[in-house]
Design a protein around this nucleic acid. Sequence first.
RNA 1: GCCGGCGUAGCUCAGUGGUAGAGCAACGCACUCGUAAUGCGUAGGCCAGGGGUUCAAGUCCCCUCGCCGGCUCCA
Length: 636
Amino acid sequence: MVKAILKDDSFREYEQGTKLIEIAKDISPRLAKAAVVARVNGELTDLRAGLHEDAQVEFLDFNTEGGQEVFRHSTAHVMAQAVQNLYPDTKLAIGPAIANGFYYDFDTKETFSSEDLEKIEAEMKKIVKENLPFERYEMSREEALSKFSAAGEDYKVELIKDLPEDATITCYQQGDFEDLCAGPHVLSTGLLKAVKLLNTAGAYWRGDEKNKMLQRIYGTSFTKKSLLDEHLHRLEEAKRRDHRKLGKELDLFSIHDEGPGFPFFHHKGMVLRNELEEFWREEHRRRGYQEIRTPVILNRELWERSGHWDHYQENMYFTNIDENDYAVKPMNCPGSMIVFRNRLYSYRDLPLRMAEIGLVHRHELSGVLHGLMRVRCFNQDDAHIFMLPDQIRDEIIGVIDLVDYFYKVFGFEYHVELSTKPSKAMGSDEIWETATNALREALQARGLEYRINEGDGAFYGPKIDFHLKDCLDRTWQCGTIQLDFQMPEKFDLEYVGEDGQKHRPVMIHRVVFGSIERFIGILIEHFAGAFPTWLAPVQVKVLPIADRHHSYARALTDKLFDLGVRVEIDDRSEKVNYKIREAQSQKIPYMLVVGDKEAANGSVAVRHRSQGDLGPQPIEQFTEGLLEEIKQRQIR
RNA sequence: GCCGGCGUAGCUCAGUGGUAGAGCAACGCACUCGUAAUGCGUAGGCCAGGGGUUCAAGUCCCCUCGCCGGCUCCA
């Protein structure tokens, strides 16, 4: 007999080898019905597998992360089967579950059109209807190699060859389709009731652009059609929040063929942007930063010295002045180096926090441009902190606090990554080790959870990245903290220490918004264009009901204007309903309807864009509340 | 840059080889109105750009540019 120890620490005994699905049924038929996969001693395991020793046993349904992943992964297998049924000469690459679904990469002469996706989906439905069991079996390395090379599955052969010598090689089979797979899988295809193939895309084998480009099909699946419909509906809703769409509708910015990747900011976008910068300056002043501004174009020698000429050239733009080579800055740091070196600092001056909102240009591949999220010129809210080695930890913690404070003001949730030494890097392994550890310690001291992003550091140092999500849950790097021992060396930076000797300072590069453009993109999608009042391009719209109310409405508008409120009046000969509709669709926080009653007693009828009609208020009461809301930067 | 899709009025989109359309927006006139669209009228297009096929091209083919979804890359 073996013990199955359940989540509540109780246990049940079964004969050795009892299938997990039987155990689930024994506990509760409902549990067995909902279960997608089991977790045995922390390992995801097929429900069909037997329990052979005492173990912690847990059953995961579709509502768990692991359950969903297994469910989607099984759907990917069914898709691969459907594709091979319809297009027999297709070779299979890989097909994992991803955040909201799954994909599978195929090598085939066919180019899949949307009609093909429908055909494949129909074929998948057939396979689901057949309710084929997913069966697992193990095989030796040789057996696996001969099986998959005989089948012409070159990519699988490559995968097998890369498995460690002693790895257990497993295959899963449903019907006559089998695939190399570590598993686990759901019991049978019949569970995969609601499937939708979403789109196709090219993807390099193993993500390397030197390799062949494969065809990837993305899809998603759910246990019930209603859940799938809900998900598809959410996707539609998300498209309405797209910053590119809202940027146009709200007249914030535009991007033109005349400058792909170079956004034009319109007046309303600039108002928003200036508010962000004002907030930024206020907070940086408070936290002991000074502000500088350095040129956009600097000569070749500088970029050679900084290492950008060697390590970053393919992303840079160049020009020639008086027969000398110059480059347009892709980063602000070399400019800051020059400012630091401009005079001699004492250890008493450190840490020196030197901020710059700097316009940088980077040559990005045309295919990656995306609204304001990825552009070819953007403003970084940069800062370079020069410090003594023993100030590193506190300074990093200070920046982490700053980023956290900023993101909370906007109500953003974020996740953190620690990126380590890339292949194209300057400096010794030891220095990288020290720098990476300093970042890690700061994260731990602050109790922040983080992921390791191997090899994704900047060429001059490791970094902590702060990622935010857009309307489709795609994540974008915004804030970053990079520790740099290289630049001070390259630029021969020095300060005079307590001992009267010259010493090398350590440096942090950091941004909070990251790119102001990208941050605005995130901001637009996060609020769906309904910005907090302090950021709203127009904060109040005054709506006179008829022409005879114009003078009262204008006096009111002037009064608000004098208080520093961004106010507009809609004095067109239109009905109030029409004016409200327009103000609503512009997502203006407050509409003040004024007619006979208001003009008579000096009041305003307040309408809030999301709370609706708030009724009449004396003007002073309204302005008082409004100014307070703006001052506090409230989200409402 | 690579794979696939797309490009028609300011915006959203119809238009399957035979005279370029609608709604909204703009402009004009009337209406003076109480919490999400008043009515009537006017104007607006080198159908992304270039080349080709055809008696005839928005429509079919080729090239270029741009956009969208991915890959790769990154703030």
